[in-house]
């Protein structure tokens, strides 16, 4: 049951066995919980309900997290204590500095552009006849994997050498040729390639921004809009004085949420360039150092850095939420 299943019937059997085992555990918990009543019993029921969750989170998240932070102070083999040397490497090694620079590009550009596009689009299609269809088009990329998104865009960026009657098959290079330019190796030219990868993330995240912001726009009370309209404001004033202030707290949430997702982006880089040609980011470098370069210590330090970078964004998010609630 705990072996590797290799044929399809075996796989399905193993899945059913796992689900049965899980159902049995759940049944046991509920059975025991059912035997307790009264105030003292309440506590036991609560602890029983929480037991599996606490165990899983403890073993699967808390312990591994602490362990990784600890490992980040050890060398490549995870044996010798080397203090902050791994962090020193991240902030001094030329390759690692490129990784950091790229990560900054990603985290600064993606949230703002994706949110701006999402907001503009949400306003443009609001209350139009094709609203739900138009929104679905932009939102669809959100449902597919970063890997598939990477493949789709790699095809857009595809390059064919500029010789004889070789034709371009990538859309961007064909446009360049039509406009009289020479085709470019889009995914190899650095730092252009990093920005082209960022486009993919924007393509995915704009739908998220649009959906959340669209709901916020629809939540603006009608009487405010009506009053402004009676005052004769134009479209720009409406946006500047009514829409934007009303959705501002939501904009912050969307920005920070996309920022965090972007910080951890890995699949896009790995699928499209493998982190080569100066496109690596922290999340990708973590994987490369840990599994390809066998540098456990540096890998752990990069993972920890990722964790540390998330904290201020979350802190800002919670703080601005508090402020908007206090208002």
């Amino acid at each position: 049951m705990f072996n590797t299943a290799s044929t399809t019937p075996e796989k399905i059997l193993q899945m059913l066995a796992a689900l049965l085992l899980f159902a049995a555990v759940m049944g046991l918990i509920l059975f025991i919980a059912g035997r307790f009543g009264g105030k003292r019993g309440d506590r036991i029921v609560a602890y029983l309900y929480l037991l599996p969750v606490v165990l899983m989170l403890g073993i699967g998240l808390v312990y591994p997290g602490l362990r990784t932070i600890y490992q980040s102070f050890f060398d490549a083999a995870g044996k010798a204590f080397i203090g902050f040397d791994n962090y020193g490497t991240i902030f001094s090694d030329a390759d690692q500095l490129t990784v950091l620079r790229n990560t900054v590009f990603w985290v600064v550009v993606t949230p703002f552009v994706a949110t701006a596009i999402g907001l503009v689009y949400a306003i443009l299609v609001d209350k139009s006849r094709f609203e739900s269809f138009a929104k679905t088009l932009i939102f669809l990329p959100m449902s597919i994997s970063f890997v598939a998104a990477g493949v789709i865009w790699k095809f857009v960026y595809e390059y064919r050498p500029d010789q004889g009657n070789v034709k371009q098959i990538g859309l961007i290079n064909q446009l360049i040729v039509w406009l009289g330019g020479k085709p470019v190796q889009l995914l190899i030219e650095s730092p252009l390639n990093t920005f082209l990868l960022i486009v993919v993330m924007i393509w995915v995240q704009a739908g998220f921004a649009m959906t959340i912001l669209s709901a916020a726009i629809k939540a603006i009370p009608d009487d405010i809009i009506e009053a402004a309209r009676l005052d004769g404001v134009n479209a720009w004033q409406m946006f500047r004085k009514i829409t934007l202030p009303s959705v501002q707290p939501t904009v912050v949430v969307v920005l920070t949420t996309i920022g965090i997702a972007t910080l951890k982006v890995f699949d896009i880089v790995r699928t499209m360039t493998g982190g080569n040609f100066g496109t690596s980011v922290v999340a990708n470098e973590f994987y490369r150092q840990t599994f390809n370069a066998d540098n456990q210590g540096l890998g752990a330090a990069l993972a920890t850095l990722l964790f540390v970078l998330v904290i201020p964004i979350v802190w800002y998010n919670i703080r601005s939420l508090r402020q908007s609630e206090a208002r």
């Binding site: 969750v53 606490v54 591994p64 362990r67 990784t68 999340a283 840990t290 456990q296 752990a300 964790f307």
Partner: peptide
């Protein structure tokens, strides 16, 4: 306990993978 569970949302998967 609830605060701790809530806070665990921010843990990036990357920090858990090797020990797991």
């Amino acid at each position: 306990l609830f605060l701790m569970v809530f806070a665990l949302q921010i843990v990036p998967l990357q920090v858990t993978l090797i020990p797991l």
